[in-house]
Amino acid sequence: MTDSAQPETLPTPATVTLGTGQAALTTTNIGYGAMSIAGAYGSIAEDAALQLLEHVSESGVNFIDTANIYGDGVSEEIVGKFLTGRRDEFVLATKVGIEKGGGVGQRRARGDSAYIKEQIDHSLRRLGTDYVDLYYLHRVDPEVPIEESAGALGELVEAGKVRGIGLSEATGEEIRRAHAVHPLSAVQSEWSIFARDVEVHVLPAVAELGIGFVPYSPVGRGLLTDHFSPDDLTEGDGRHNFPWFQGENLTHNQQLAQKVRQIAAEVSVPTAALALSWLFEKAAGFGATISPIPGTRYAKHWNELQAGLGADGSGGTVSAAALEQLEGLAAEVAGERSFNSGWVSGGREGLVPRP
């Protein structure tokens, strides 16, 4: 990326409403994904993490997304310290539904009512609050009907511990079944230039039902930025577990990402900004309201992401020519987006190979 592509003044995020009726949550149209501050992609000191959250806040963003499994609670604890004395200024999301195991690939999805109700209290304690604005089922438990999980989440709303509920990586059918039990505020799934299976069933479902959509990994876990290098993948980097970042797949996908960087350079924007702008353009076509939640450990990288909101902060504009060039890239990506396709919506919908 050239210096001229580095934004000098960040656009102010627009306000969006995720969900409708009693499930409506109003927040900024970009949020911070706080997995990065728990060491998923490399270490970060707590003081640096708090400074980064302050930078995001000063940039006009009030939406923070974390989960109980990120660093086994570390992310929630850091977010909780950041929120001390100003909890009501932020829309706070966290998640339940992945039970700790032997590391990535050995964990299990768990969505029974007892577990959900147990874990919310642990999350509230770590976050230093008595409620969360949005509580997601992190993964759908194959052994528990989605109606049970949604019912348990709904009971937490009635108890005042949660204001809105959501699902992560749910299929279109699972979304409809859960929404019939208790209205969903949002669905969170991976969506990017490189990962597009949600466009077949998930996005049409949320658009029809008026549910917000929260794309995670909108820059392909760093691939769709100007900064990624295979040399950055240290021994403890969680990306080693994902097929995109393994062996020949990584070499191929890095070359494919270079095409995106070239397109971004042609229009003088950071690659991360182009990736975010692309999401807003595609979401408009589906009639979906979105709030992407990119994550990073660096303020400079955050600035590049937020530049994707465009001059007026509403979501940027990607030229028709750029959209056309980006359209077919997902089909060329080597490897699946998850280490276990059964854990993501596209795997259970038959859109990506199952293990």
Score class of each variant (00 low, 15 high):
residue 42 G to F: 00
residue 39 G to V: 12
residue 56 V to R: 07
residue 53 L to C: 04
residue 40 A to G: 14
residue 65 D to E: 05
residue 45 A to C: 09
residue 40 A to W: 15
residue 53 L to N: 09
residue 56 V to W: 05
residue 42 G to H: 05
residue 47 D to T: 11
residue 38 A to N: 10
residue 58 E to G: 03
residue 52 L to A: 02
residue 44 I to V: 10
residue 46 E to N: 04
residue 62 N to Q: 09
residue 46 E to F: 01
residue 37 I to Y: 13
residue 40 A to H: 15
residue 51 Q to N: 15
residue 45 A to H: 13
residue 41 Y to P: 04
residue 39 G to W: 10
residue 55 H to W: 08
residue 41 Y to L: 04
residue 51 Q to T: 13
residue 38 A to M: 06
residue 39 G to Y: 13
residue 40 A to F: 14
residue 42 G to K: 04
residue 43 S to D: 13
residue 49 A to G: 03
residue 40 A to S: 15
residue 63 F to Q: 09
residue 64 I to Y: 14
residue 44 I to Q: 13
residue 45 A to V: 12
residue 55 H to N: 07
residue 42 G to S: 04
residue 45 A to K: 14
residue 44 I to T: 11
residue 54 E to M: 06
residue 60 G to H: 12
residue 62 N to Y: 08
residue 56 V to N: 09
residue 36 S to N: 15
residue 49 A to T: 00
residue 41 Y to C: 00
residue 65 D to Y: 04
residue 37 I to R: 00
residue 64 I to A: 06
residue 56 V to G: 01
residue 53 L to D: 01
residue 43 S to V: 10
residue 64 I to P: 04
residue 51 Q to V: 09
residue 37 I to K: 07
residue 46 E to M: 05
residue 59 S to P: 13
residue 43 S to T: 12
residue 36 S to E: 15
residue 57 S to N: 11
residue 36 S to G: 15
residue 53 L to W: 00
residue 64 I to V: 14
residue 49 A to R: 02
residue 37 I to L: 14
residue 57 S to R: 15
residue 63 F to P: 08
residue 52 L to K: 05
residue 53 L to Q: 07
residue 64 I to G: 02
residue 55 H to L: 10
residue 37 I to F: 07
residue 49 A to W: 03
residue 63 F to K: 04
residue 47 D to P: 09
residue 40 A to R: 12
residue 60 G to M: 13
residue 47 D to Y: 04
residue 46 E to G: 01
residue 50 L to C: 09
residue 42 G to Q: 03
residue 59 S to D: 08
residue 65 D to K: 02
residue 62 N to S: 11
residue 51 Q to D: 15
residue 52 L to R: 02
residue 58 E to N: 14
residue 59 S to C: 11
residue 48 A to F: 01
residue 43 S to A: 13
residue 56 V to S: 00
residue 41 Y to H: 03
residue 47 D to I: 08
residue 61 V to S: 00
residue 50 L to A: 01
residue 55 H to D: 08
residue 52 L to W: 00
residue 57 S to L: 06
residue 60 G to Q: 14
residue 37 I to C: 03
residue 48 A to G: 02
residue 58 E to Y: 01
residue 49 A to H: 03
residue 51 Q to E: 12
residue 63 F to E: 06
residue 53 L to R: 05
residue 40 A to I: 13
residue 52 L to D: 01
residue 52 L to N: 02
residue 51 Q to K: 05
residue 46 E to L: 07
residue 64 I to Q: 08
residue 43 S to R: 08
residue 50 L to S: 08
residue 61 V to P: 03
residue 39 G to R: 07
residue 40 A to P: 14
residue 44 I to N: 02
residue 50 L to E: 01
residue 57 S to D: 15
residue 58 E to C: 08
residue 60 G to C: 11
residue 42 G to W: 00
residue 55 H to Q: 12
residue 43 S to L: 11
residue 50 L to K: 02
residue 62 N to W: 10
residue 44 I to G: 06
residue 55 H to P: 04
residue 65 D to F: 02
residue 53 L to Y: 04
residue 39 G to F: 09
residue 46 E to R: 06
residue 55 H to M: 08
residue 54 E to G: 10
residue 63 F to M: 09
residue 48 A to P: 00
residue 43 S to G: 05
residue 41 Y to V: 02
